[in-house]
Amino acid sequence: MTRVAAIDCGTNSIRLLVADVPADGGHTDLLRRMEVVRLGQGVDATGRLAPEAIERTRLVLAEYAAAARDLGATDVRMVATSATRDAANRAEFEDMARATLGRTPDVVTGREEAELSFLGATGSVAAAAAAHGLQPPRPPYLVVDIGGGSTEFVLGDDDGVLAARSVDIGCVRLTERHLHDDPPTPEQTALGERDIRTALAEVTAEVPVDRAATLVGLAGSVTTVAALALDLPTYDSEAIHGSRIPVDDVRRVAAGLLAATRVQRAASPVMHPGRVDVIGAGALVLRVLMDEFGLPEVTVSEHDILDGIALRLARPQA
Rank of each mutant, 00 (worst) to 15 (best):
D304F: 01
V222A: 07
V285Y: 09
V79D: 02
V288Q: 09
R312G: 02
H180P: 00
D44H: 13
D86R: 14
G120D: 02
S243W: 06
L311N: 00
A281E: 08
D75F: 00
V285L: 10
D20V: 08
L49I: 08
I309Q: 04
V167F: 10
L16E: 07
P183E: 07
E63K: 15
V161M: 12
R15F: 03
T224P: 05
G42W: 03
T74I: 07
T223M: 09
D291G: 03
A267N: 00
S301W: 08
G42D: 12
S243K: 04
T81K: 06
V253P: 01
A229N: 08
A88Y: 04
L289P: 01
A213N: 15
A229D: 06
E94H: 04
A45D: 10
T214A: 06
R287M: 11
T74R: 15
M1A: 13
D168R: 12
G10S: 10
A281S: 12
V172Q: 07
V18D: 04
H303S: 13
V108R: 10
R32A: 09
C9A: 15
V36T: 15
G40Y: 09
D86F: 00
A163P: 11
I7K: 10
I54A: 00
L218V: 15
I169Q: 04
V76M: 11
L289V: 06
E115K: 13
A219Y: 01
G149E: 11
G147L: 06
D159E: 15
R3F: 10
L49P: 08
L313Q: 15
D195Y: 02
L142K: 03
R197V: 13
A126H: 12
D158K: 12
D157Y: 08
A6P: 07
A128Y: 00
D248R: 13
C171S: 15
L134Y: 09
R138V: 13
S166K: 10
A91E: 15
G160K: 05
V207Q: 07
H178Y: 14
S117R: 01
L59A: 15
A129D: 05
V167E: 13
T214K: 06
A66K: 14
S166N: 11
G256H: 04
M1H: 13
H178F: 14
P136Q: 05
T261Q: 07
V161D: 12
V203I: 01
G25W: 10
G280W: 03
L289I: 01
V21S: 02
R69A: 15
I279P: 00
P208V: 05
A19L: 03
G294C: 04
Q317M: 09
Y64I: 11
A19M: 08
T109M: 05
A6G: 09
A201V: 00
D168M: 13
P269T: 09
A83C: 11
A259F: 09
E94L: 10
L59F: 06
T74Y: 00
I305K: 08
E35F: 08
P316V: 11
P140A: 11
T224Y: 03
D168W: 00
V18K: 05
V125W: 02
V207P: 06
G280Q: 03
T198F: 04
T109A: 12
